[in-house]
Nucleic acid binder design. Structure first.
Lengths: 293, 293
DNA sequence: CCATTTAATGAATCGTTAG
DNA sequence: TCTAACGATTCATTAAATG
């Protein structure tokens, strides 16, 4: 039996994070309140104050993350008064100064972006997914996110229904437990750093702008079953829900009791699974790093 | 008759630019040598020196650009030793300090990106197309780059479900485009700030990494016939060739005589066209700005 | 002459070897 | 202990070759 914990913590993550153990998290994936957005829920941080506001939090994130762990930050600067703000650029520079490595910038191409029309710009159809690490030797399971090779897009147009069924099946039995290497050799290719995902429109109470596939992709890429995922700005809990479904321990923090309640109803605090053939507690390649950092 | 000039200037653009008139350019679109790239052709600028190297050039660009003109900068930071360099971020901040407005960041999604496999990252499939302006009132002809809605819908069909399709229709009917000319009303939609283009594989002598569609798109978007386009790092001249074909005046600068020769063979210095029905010298909406700035 | 296969080639990045 | 140079890896596209 393996035991998966899902912890939901109420409070300001700057404070709550201090209660977490050092080097205990394998993956942080979060979408913090953008500057001046979500004023009614979060404070609504002024762009000029954004870096200053974020650094104390990221300092705690740096502490709780394992040396071979990864921090994925979903963010996009707003346009205001005809210009893009620069606080995200400044944040990247500041995080590096704080000790983070800026490893990569993935692009999330939002296929169905927010509608609108302006005389001076087009609709914004992409967001940044910034990857930060503590060390250069981080865990990365690239095979887990391999995609059907080449012109799968063309094929899908021709046989739309067929392929969609296949894709659905792949989703449901999402690859774990089976020995993948057999059937994916020349059928699949590694993805790039551009992710094409549609936002999910939730007509429910709280809109989940974050599509489930996004945390799912990064959780597959950077963690194994039994690892621990953290989202310090949980919101409606997409990351936490997906993590639990994928048999990862997870910790979600939010300042609003409302969100804690919502996610509580979508998850269970403890779950048990039968151990599969290949033990989940695999030898960690980079264990040595933990002591260094 | 209208007369279109195509000037090719040999030399270091930092010096050559000084010979150009102030406020004489409608669109600058260029792809400068990236840091540490093209060592054999250009010098190969060190990442640490990149901003310092670029600023004197961009100062001249700021001078020659019209107040209602636009500057499109194609660039991407390299990854080295496990980390992305930050010189592009620093360049954006420095350009703003120099007086430029950072209006937008388009994403060029390179469908056929460079191959390769590494333990710590995927292939890099995107580049930045940074838009800078002198003033907030710049020319932008959005209707010129509208895309057939069919393609758009097709593209979306690939990844979206029924609910999303319905939402699409709601979007399309949502108001804009009434004053636009008749033939594009329900056939076309505005694009977003993500461009999907493949690099052109030139097996010829000199590779044009820049696909023709890229300058074409921006020339349509930011200029009219008879306007002037500048590329201070001309290279094999994709921008210049496209500009001439689109009946725009153009100025190309390059430090290598070789490139000047190549582009000379692909263009003619002066071309004449019959004036079409709707005069090309349309009233400029933002003419007033010229005086202000 | 068209449909299909094969070959060549990049604005890449990392690890290793040489100076 | 550095930096510089080279090989290995990889895939979408185009050109050339094949049937």
């Amino acid at each position: 039996m393996i035991k998966i914990n899902t912890k939901l913590l109420l409070g300001d993550c700057k404070e709550i994070l201090k209660t977490l153990d050092s080097n205990s998290i394998d993956l942080i994936i979060t979408s913090p309140p953008y500057a001046d957005r979500r004023k009614h829920t979060y404070g609504g941080i002024k762009p000029e104050k954004y870096v200053e506001w974020f650094l104390p939090i990221s300092e705690e994130l740096l502490r709780v993350l394992r040396a071979d762990g990864t921090f994925i930050l979903n963010i996009k600067e707003k346009a205001e008064n005809g210009e893009r703000h620069t606080y995200v650029l400044e944040l990247i520079l500041a995080l590096r100064k704080q000790g983070w490595l800026w490893t990569e910038e993935f692009i999330w191409h939002k296929k169905n972006c927010y509608p609108g029309k302006w005389p001076n710009r087009f609709r914004d159809a992409w967001e940044r997914l910034l990857q930060f690490n503590k060390t250069k030797k981080f865990k990365m399971y690239q095979e887990e996110v391999m995609v059907p090779i080449g012109d799968w897009a063309k094929d899908r147009l021709k046989h739309l229904n067929e392929v969609d069924k296949i894709r659905d099946n792949a989703k449901n039995g999402s690859g774990f437990g089976k020995n993948v290497s057999n059937w994916l050799n020349r059928e699949k290719a590694y993805p790039t750093n551009v992710l094409h995902l549609a936002t999910e429109c939730n007509n429910k109470n709280h809109s989940a702008v974050f599509p489930e596939d996004l945390p799912k992709w990064f959780i597959k890429l950077f963690t194994k079953e039994g690892d621990t995922v953290l989202d310090p700005f949980m919101g409606s809990g997409t990351t936490i829900v997906v993590a639990q479904r994928m048999k990862r321990n997870s910790i979600g923090i939010d300042i609003l009791p409302e969100y804690i309640e919502i996610v509580k109803n979508k998850t269970s605090p403890v779950q048990y699974y039968l151990v599969e053939e290949k033990g989940i507690y695999e030898t960690n390649k980079y264990k040595g790093c933990t002591k260094i950092c």
